[in-house]
Design a binder for these strands. Structure first.
Length: 224
DNA sequence: GGGTGATCATGG
DNA sequence: CCATGATCACCC
């Protein structure tokens, strides 16, 4: 019942993921010997870490795919009763300095999203955490149209950053990909390019996938 | 501080 | 009502 070691193949990873479908978070936590927190207010990453553990992802905070040897990134995604995502999906941090030679092809966004194993989890707050159920996994690779949308947004956002306009970027920019603060708090600062080309300080930012985009991925997978 | 896992909570 | 901007915990 316990899977501490990394899966050796994509098939093994998918088998483990399928075996979780239908289970509650409480059942999964029990099997792993984890305590269930009262809510997620102080444990926002708990579900993601629980599922990482169950699937044998290498615990770590490296800017890499979760299953590097399989070329797979793992994402849990909270959904409502209709299957719609309740939150945007964090992808990775955004470069705010030395953006000169960066291309979409070599970007961290493209690398992370090349192949994603989505694990939907019931996320409505009126369902006690332990009772929330895990859904069927979806192994997704962006199709040509999705890649084009991602690339267009990424390039537009990087252009703003390179021109020193990061402070004028809001989460409203981008069709499918948005840039938002990603830090411990608003006091966190990192270097960025200013409009005159000099170096300034701003809140660290991350790339996030907008809800309609991830919703479409789930709908396609379940043919809803 | 920079990265991972994300959700919280309130203003528009 | 819900997406944006802010925040939480942990690792190194």
């Amino acid at each position: 019942m316990n899977y501490p070691s990394p899966p050796e193949s994509l098939d093994e990873l998918l088998s483990r993921a399928r075996a979780m479908a239908g289970l509650s978070l409480g059942q999964l936590a029990l099997g792993l010997g984890w305590d269930v927190p009262p809510d997620l207010k102080r444990d926002k990453g708990w579900i993601g870490q629980l599922i990482e553990q169950e699937l044998g992802a290498t615990a770590g905070s490296r800017p890499e795919q979760d299953f590097l040897h399989l070329g797979v990134e793992l994402k849990t995604i909270p959904i409502d009763r209709t299957g719609k995502p309740l939150e945007t999906t964090y992808v990775c941090v955004a470069p705010l300095m030395d953006t000169g030679g960066l291309t979409w092809q070599q970007s961290l966004v493209k690398h992370k999203l090349e192949r994603v194993l989505w694990i939907p989890v019931e996320g409505e707050r009126d369902i006690p955490l332990a009772q929330r159920r895990i859904g069927s996994p979806i192994l997704w690779q962006p199709d040509e149209a999705e890649l084009a949308l991602l690339r267009q947004d990424w390039e537009e956002i990087l252009e703003f950053i390179a021109l020193g306009k990061v402070s004028s970027l809001t989460a409203r920019h981008g069709e499918v990909l948005q840039l938002r603060p990603k830090a411990a708090n608003a006091a966190a600062k990192t270097e960025c390019i200013l409009e005159d080309g000099s170096v300034g300080l701003t809140n660290p930012r991350g790339f996030y996938l907008k809800i309609p985009f991830t919703h479409a991925i789930l709908r396609r997978a379940f043919a809803l």
